[in-house]
Design a protein around this nucleic acid. Structure first.
Lengths: 204, 204
DNA sequence: ATTTTCACTGGACAGCCTGTCTTTCATCGG
DNA sequence: CCGATGAAAGACAGGCTGTCCAGTGAAAAT
């Protein structure tokens, strides 16, 4: 039973295409009805794919949402957030970083709301993708705090850890959403308020 | 068809007892497995009651959770929060209020986490109970802001509305939880940090 | 041209959960 | 004791998940 070699070109592309269609369908589902549970049946129909194909490609419901979250990160450019706002002045960089994150939050608000809530509600619903995001955010907060400390911008009674904790809190999706959705403030306003809060609390 | 009168004594008590048992069962369910969806089946079994009784008493799943949230509020004393911390000094009152709220959040953390996430995910999952809580919190935030303004404690570049918005954000469950669970800080620490943030951002 | 490989289908199935409906049971007034 | 009343139990239909598998059609190899 000598297995002959088998290079895929067209078929691999088609496969990638269906994967994309499914992920896009999830996005559409969440965006159009963020307040309703996402049925895989609907996702499959939207992607013009059999329901079993979803399981075939992503393994499970959790796997699908994990992939979806990962994809959203990638496309939203969350990962490049840090480098993109590397300003020589730590304080300016902080403001820029906050503004950038808030803008992304706003762009995908409904979808992120659903994703975060799902992650909170059942641990494996999104397969740890949200946890990974949050870990990255924690690292980012610590990096920002470090830079402020290095440049002597922190108040004397504020340690780097404390600064990192506060930035972690203020740059979270929930902080954004409480002002953006809860108080109907425009994105720029939200970013401004949060940046100001961070500065007044942490900087000398 | 003259309906004769019908005084309930034993039965009414028993009924009230059943209601309590069911609500307590919900609490137990949420506390023991906050990261898993609550099945009414399990609630009923825990309350030593038929599942249909749950529907009979509370109407629907949403109704049950609405009643549960209401009950939690009542027992947790959320409603009395405002009066309890009416300090002559607005700034002291603010600190006290924040500490009080955070302590309550901590006491019921797991349950509240589930409740809030459910409310976010599907609007009628908790039958608007969370919305009512949040409305009360918004009023509280505005009250605190007003008091600060009246006593001339606000920075000149901060309006009462802005102060209310920030207090609204900082006193939310999510802000608490990001520090308490996300950063593993003890309650007192969390309250301290949030109160300090509020003061430094808002007060002169 | 023929064979092999593989993504995808389509349907069947058990399992869990919800919500409703009907039936049974315990308590109350007379 | 009896009939009335409301609480509780059980049966039922419907929806969604996750698994399984025989089958199909098109790309790739020979």
């Amino acid at each position: 039973m000598a297995t002959r070699k088998y290079d895929q070109r067209l078929r691999a592309e088609a496969s990638e295409e269906t994967r994309r269609r499914i992920l896009d369908a999830v996005y559409t589902c969440l965006r159009e009805a963020p307040a309703e549970p996402v049925a895989l049946d609907k996702v499959a129909r939207l992607a013009r794919v059999s329901r079993s194909t979803v399981y075939l490609v992503f393994g499970s419901r959790g796997g699908l949402f994990a992939a979806f979250a990962e994809d959203l990160l990638e496309r939203g450019g969350f990962s490049r957030m840090l480098e993109a706002t590397a300003h020589p002045n730590a304080r300016e960089g902080l403001r820029g970083g906050i503004h950038g994150v808030m803008t992304m939050y706003a762009a995908h608000r409904d979808v992120l709301r659903a994703l975060y809530s799902m992650a909170m509600l059942s641990a494996d619903a999104v397969g740890g993708a949200v946890q990974r995001i949050e870990q990255g955010r924690a690292a980012g907060a610590y990096y920002r705090a470090m830079r402020l400390a290095d440049q002597g911008q922190l108040r004397p009674d504020v340690t780097t850890e404390e600064a990192a904790d506060l930035l972690w809190m203020l740059t979270g999706f929930d902080s954004f959403d409480l002002l953006y959705t809860g108080r109907s403030l425009p994105v720029d306003r939200v970013a401004e308020r949060i940046a100001t809060t961070a500065e007044r609390t942490l900087c000398r």
